[in-house]
Amino acid sequence: MKKQLIAAAVLSTLLSGAAFAQQTTEGQWMVRARAVHLESDNGDSTGLGLSMNNKWMPEVDVSYFFNPNMAVELILTVPQKHTLYSNGADIGTFKHLPPTLLAQYHFPMNGFKPYVGAGINYTRFSSVDLKVAGASIDKNSWGPALQVGVDIPLSKGVYLNFDLKKVYIRTDVSLNSAKIGEFKADPLLVGVGLGWRF
């Protein structure tokens, strides 16, 4: 009886190992390229009616899978130029660079591969050029990021990707070095693209 239990345990271990190996044959890395539409929430506590333009932008991400369900994703783009408005009037431009790091859970489903993610965003504002004398914004922003998406297999290792993120990006607004409020971009990012698993 004891030998049978040992044999069953060994067989179970081998089978589970084989199943895991089969699940991870695609590799632990995935790279996606997306076109993303950024829509700002335009929250403003300065009383100036601040807003920024929405736009399409390129996005590239690199994911590492620890197992079939758990992954981390680093999202990158190039600095994006925006126009800042006050009550609809153009008051200047700035660029923002928003790398984001997310922990993801991928649901074990056949075919479609939905996932959810949560993490942190760091945004660096640069090339700030405001037409209002003495006006400035804080050039660094840290905030949470939330994500939901799905990878749809097209062929071996190639996926169609749909992705939705909410990223909290905020900056203090100052006039003559005195803080007058906060501008909350807090954009919603809707993306579509292709992914390669290897």
Rank of each mutant, 00 (worst) to 15 (best):
D172E: 12
L5P: 00
V173L: 07
Q28K: 15
W29M: 13
F125T: 00
L14N: 03
V36Q: 03
K95Y: 06
R197E: 11
P58G: 02
L14D: 05
F20R: 14
L15Q: 11
Y159I: 10
S12E: 08
G119S: 10
W29N: 13
Q147C: 10
L48H: 06
E39T: 09
N87K: 12
P144G: 14
F107S: 06
V116H: 02
P68M: 12
Q23S: 10
A33P: 07
I75C: 01
E73G: 01
F112L: 13
S12K: 06
Q4T: 04
T25D: 14
L175D: 10
A145H: 00
L97A: 07
H82N: 06
R34I: 01
L101I: 04
N161H: 13
N42W: 05
D41V: 08
S136I: 02
P153H: 03
S16C: 05
G88F: 10
D151S: 15
E59S: 02
V36I: 07
G49K: 03
L15I: 11
E182A: 09
L189S: 00
F66A: 05
Q4A: 09
V10F: 02
S177L: 05
G117M: 03
N87D: 15
I6S: 08
D186P: 00
I180R: 05
S155V: 09
I91H: 01
V148N: 09
H96L: 07
D41F: 13
Y85I: 05
T100Y: 02
L130W: 03
A9K: 08
L74V: 01
A35G: 15
W56L: 07
Q28C: 11
A178P: 02
V60W: 09
G134A: 10
E73Q: 08
Y105E: 08
V116G: 03
I137T: 05
L102S: 00
G88E: 08
N69C: 11
E182V: 14
N42E: 08
L175Q: 14
L160I: 10
L146C: 08
L97H: 01
G195P: 07
K113P: 06
I91M: 03
S136Q: 05
A71M: 14
D129N: 14
L194I: 13
V62N: 02
W56I: 01
K139Q: 14
V190N: 08
A35F: 14
P99D: 02
T46W: 07
G49M: 04
M52L: 04
G149W: 05
T46H: 09
H106V: 06
L175T: 10
F125V: 00
D172S: 11
I6G: 04
F162I: 13
M52D: 11
L101T: 00
L76E: 11
A71S: 15
A21H: 02
N110L: 04
F107P: 03
Y105A: 10
I169N: 00
N54T: 06
V10N: 01
A135C: 03
I180P: 05
Y122C: 04
N69D: 13
A185K: 00
L76H: 07
S40L: 05
M52N: 09
Y122N: 00
N67M: 12
S45I: 06
S12R: 05
A18N: 12
